[in-house]
Nucleic acid binder design. Sequence first.
DNA 1: TAGCTCGTTGGACAA
DNA 2: TTTGTCCAACGAGCT
Length: 496
Amino acid sequence: MPSSSIVWFRDDLRLADNPALTEAAASGGPVIAVYVHDVESEGMRAPGGASLWWLHHSLTALGDSLRAHGVPLLIFREPAREAVLRCVTETGATAVHWNRRYGAAEIAVDTAVKGDLKAAGIDASSHNASLLYEPWKVRSKVGDPFKVFSPFWRAAMATGEPPPPRPAPSSIKGAELPAVSGAVRLEDLDLLPTKPDWAGGFRETWRPGEAGAAEALDLFLEEGLHLYAGNRDRPDMPATSSLSPRLRFGEIGPRQVWHAAAHALHDGRIRATEKDLAKFHTELGWREFSYHLLFHNPDLARTNFQRRFDAFPWRDDRKSLRLWQRGLTGVPIVDAGMRQLWRTGWMHNRVRMIVASFLVKDLLIDWRAGEEFFWDTLVDADPANNAASWQWVAGSGADAAPYFRVFNPITQGEKFDPDGIYVRRWVPELAGLPNAVVHRPWEASPAVLAEAGVRLGETYPGPMVDHGRARDRALAALASLKPDGSGSRISSDTAD
DNA sequence: TAGCTCGTTGGACAA
DNA sequence: TTTGTCCAACGAGCT
């Protein structure tokens, strides 16, 4: 009888299109599933509270799916290197499979584990489950990593269409396991909030797990994709996929999403157009680009991609940061977004740009403070997307917006939430205002305010900054930076 | 090589 | 109310 293989699950909490699992199952021997909650290894960034909530439920779902095959999910809470090695020793497994991660600390751990396993004569093999294109394979003509999205994506696509997903293994053999020392119960990881339990809005909004992800994808393809090209910027419409947390935890993979969307359109099952599909595929491309940037710039979440931003005159203003975090800035679209985030662990992409621009350009608060808050509060907090997107908004990133692009939160609100539906939903104290002033209540007449039951400064705050003046201040601050010198990228400057 | 084009997501202002 | 133009300068990437 073939000996058993370990599948080390990480950001790939699914059975379908999971190459590590497929390979292990194909060996014919029993499969042992392992998850290690490792926040101790050198450089590892602890997940935020919202992510931990999601992780708990996604692991529950994964454990249930595996158990249906007779495969237990062993859980550990310690440095991964120790847990994986002990698992191999105590179970007598002869192979370990996993799917790759792309952060520097994660790569270091995986490399160390692979070295340990090889030294012990154990097969160790890594696979790609979470990206369409490996970051090191996409290069410019002179061999450099790309810094601009469009040529990156052209070059990636020129290597061919993303490979098709593979189905879940039809059978996975379970193993009679001895107790493995150090294994803990999921509850012992303490991933859920208790004092207080702030996750009520999360439970109303989400169903984590592979089945929930498949359901969300189907729903989006049937009801959302046809809106995508035209309305993906509208936070008041169901025009986006909300697959981000599912992709973050690998409950579904980008290959599955890519091909499911293409098939749904080409089978004629849905009423979307090629334009919708292309736009949606391009967004998957942005996810790829973020990982490309992270892989080649490991410190993306901490260090300005353009080092000239190191001299930016950020304001240290805890009080303003707090108002922004709580959704009490007095700017309706900003407050709506921040409250949606707080309540559900998610925010519409367009609104993320608006609130981020407000923090960085209107309040002149360091983008890293925003990145950290998002890291803690987003269920889709992702080491690549979060960091790359904050740097993009701040202007310090790759392919960043020109400095004079400062989002005007009032006109953005009026353009993308024209009927105030989104604002009224998340900022109910403004619900009675007419459309003409719902995005700028400080311009409403006393009579209109009274009619709506709004008392500025009492039931809802006045705007904490005047956007016009804030914009001028931001442009002046940006103008104070010296033009970019050479060697501005993170990776070329951090080899200290 | 040197030159050329382009750069996800905008805003203000003039006509 | 809508549309066109300009807003810096420069680096990326290609030819």
